[in-house]
């Protein structure tokens, strides 16, 4: 599955490297389903993130009840610790040729962006990033727990 990369800006310019103002980021449009409810967002591929991390507001949109969901503390860039809660949902990557759905546990927390991390996400794909050609390739592995 071939996806275009996404242009992301720097909010502060670097004092070096020719002072770039943007770069290409790997990101995919992904559906989050829970029963009949769904949300559709741009998820940034994050190889440093152990999990797939979605904003708390997505859980609200999906009408997920997280009151008794397992909680965990994760450390984010900069060292801050943040509490997240896990729930099982179905994710879907849409591509003109092959839509792919799989059911997995994702974390919900006080993030703004959708992050596509390792467990439940990248662990199920071969992943190639070509920033020069602005392309991202995700090829499903055999261990992808495909959902109907």
């Amino acid at each position: 599955m071939l996806f275009p990369t996404t242009t992301a800006t720097f909010t502060n310019r670097f004092p070096a490297f020719g002072r770039p103002t943007f770069r290409q980021m790997p990101a995919v449009n992904i559906y989050a389903h829970y029963g009949p409810a769904f949300d559709f967002g741009l998820a940034y591929i994050d190889t440093m993130s152990d999990v797939i991390l979605l904003p708390d507001s997505v859980a609200q949109k999906l009408k997920l009840d997280l009151r008794f969901a397992p909680a965990h503390t994760i450390t984010v860039v900069g060292g801050s610790q943040v509490v997240v809660q896990f729930a099982e949902i179905t994710l879907e990557l849409r591509h003109p040729r092959t839509p792919i759905r799989w059911t997995t546990e994702v974390a919900f927390g006080p993030t703004q962006r959708w992050l596509f991390g390792h467990f439940g996400g990248l662990e199920f794909f071969h992943f190639t990033l070509d920033t020069v050609n602005e392309e991202l390739i995700l090829a499903p592995r055999e261990n992808l727990p495909v959902a109907e």
Partner: peptide, 18 residues
């Protein structure tokens, strides 16, 4: 409708992912 658009948060001035 829900499938007609893709959502994204755009970082603010000096902002980052969190």
């Amino acid at each position: 409708k829900g499938g007609d658009y893709v959502t994204e948060y755009i970082d603010g001035e000096g902002g980052h992912i969190w």
